[in-house]
Every structure is written in C-alpha cells, then in structure tokens.
Amino acid sequence: MTSAVQFEKVSKHFNNVRAVDDVDLTINDGEFFAMLGPSGSGKTTCLRLIAGFERPTSGEISVLGEPVKNVPPYRRNVNTVFQDYALFPHLSVAENVSYALKIKKIDKTIRRTETENLLDMVRLQGYGDRKPSELSGGQRQRVALARALISKPKVLLLDEPLGALDLKLREEMQEELKSLQRTLGITFVFVTHDQGEAFSMADRLAVFNEGRVAQLGTPEDIYYRPKNAFVASFVGTSNVLSKNLLNSLGIEGFAASLRPEDINIDSENGIAARLISKSFLGSATRLSLEINKERLTALVDYAQGQHLKENDEVRVSWKSSALHMMQPAP
C-alpha cells in the first residue's frame, strides 16, 4: 500500500516558535485520517504544509510518493475545505464549484455537467445560481466540499470543517462525510480539536501536542491505551494515576491511565477510597473518589451506586488489564 502523505522529520518554525517540531507521519492511501489536538498544537500547520500554503523549515513531505518541496499549491493533487469555507463572494455557487475547471480551461459543456454532478452529490441541486451569501452555514459547507472535489483530488484536506455548524447539523455531516469518503475511496485528512468528531469518523488519528505527534493510532488505541498523560487527559476523562499512587498500591511505573468505567465497587477485596461526591447520570452514576489524596472518577451502574452517601468509605477495584502504563509526555 502506498502512502498518501508522508512527513519525514518535518519542522516548521515561525520566527522562534516551533509550530511543527520534527514530525514523522505516514497517512495511508484511502484512509480517513484525523489530526486531533488543542489549538496551537501544530495540527493546522501540518495541514497547510500538505496543501502547500506553508513550506517546511526542514524535512521532506511527499504526496502520493512524490516529494513536493518545490511544488506550489496549484500543482498539487490535493484540495482543501477551509475552516471559514473561503467561498468566493463575488461568484455564484456554480461558478465557485467550477472554478478549478475554469482555471484549467476545461470545455464549458463538460464544466456544466460536472458542476451539476457535484451539486447533486452534495444535495444542492438547483442552488447553482445563488450567491454564497444567500446560503445557510450547512449549505456553504457543502459548496466548499463540492468545489474541492471537482478536480478529483487524491487527497482531500478538511480544516475544522464542522466547527461553525450547530450540534445536530454537525452529527449529520459526520455521517455524510464518512459515507462520502467510502464512496470516493480517496484519502481524507481532517483537522479537529473535538475528540468525539475524530473518534466517530477517523480510521486512524494523530494526537498533536506542542508541535509533535503525542500518539498515532486507531481511535480504540488512543481511547483505551493512551501512551502518555497528555493523550489520556486530552482524550476524554481518563484517570491518570501518578507514580506516587501507583507505588502506594505496590505497582511499578511512571504513570498509568484508568478509564472511569473500568472501576468497580468491590467491598471485599477493594482498595479503600473516600466518596467525595456523586452525580446521577441516568443509567450510570458518576462517583468522585479520593485515594491517597488523589482524585479518581468512577462510572458505576445505577444499582451499585444507589446506596452510597457522600463521605462514605468505599472499596473499589479494577482488573489489572484495565490499567495502562504510560510514558513521560513527548
């Protein structure tokens, strides 16, 4: 399998800020890849490096096996859906979508049919004559998608494309993007700060922190087996057990992660903990516990947590396989 995008020791510095710091990364052909991280973690810069809007300070980027060091954006087989959509305000929807074909001087009739096809695909038949300013946020997003797909890129880059949409629309679009990617069979590279979005859509993802890849893997890897404290705390509400706590429980290690749903009430063999507070979540109850002066969150069945009261002593346990040893942050 060839790689769609490959980073070899890529760094990008802005003045003295290392936006991207020595990143090695391979994105496989045909996969739905997400770059996840807080703002300023370097994920968007990586996307802009692939598109060619930025050039790396050092290192080599290849797209479809070809080094792109000297290839400007307009000669890369890569297209982008921008965060603010970047629709051309002076052009109609159809003119926006067919822009790439017009630049390539494609025959007018072909241009028209392809534009129709793309607008059909994103379910915007009949909107061709409108101006972008007359569309809703969701519709603009579809136009941006159609415009980026018309030159049949091998790699589609999406920069926080769902950020501006409301919750319901966002969930709909997640489904749509995923099925679109399966139909087209091309590589999608998707930047987001929302871990839920990344998990529900991506085949694989890279978690970024301070210009570096903190962890690369499938959503399951990252959720259940975070490699370090940054990933564990950024991805969901995993408990991070410190070295002190581990040692006091007789376990060797730097730190470990433990998911709240893996903690059970075990009044016979459990470890003593104090219940600080509890909250009712419907089918489950969330317990805030203190062991050795460290806070842990546990998620237990409603029945298990029913009789517990604040300040009670509770005994808890977990399977040793649920505890994931972590390395220091990269």
Binding site: N70, P72, Y74, R75, R76, A100, L101, K104, S151, K152
Partner: peptide, 16 residues
C-alpha cells in the same frame, strides 16, 4: 482525470 497545470510559460515560472 484532469491534468494539473504545467510550469511552462513566463507567468507560471514567475508565479512559482
């Protein structure tokens, strides 16, 4: 598939 624009011509060279 559409061909990508080439890098021939003065404009294209300057642009690069």
């Amino acid at each position: 598939t559409h061909t990508l624009p080439d890098n021939k011509g003065l404009m294209a060279k300057l642009s690069d």
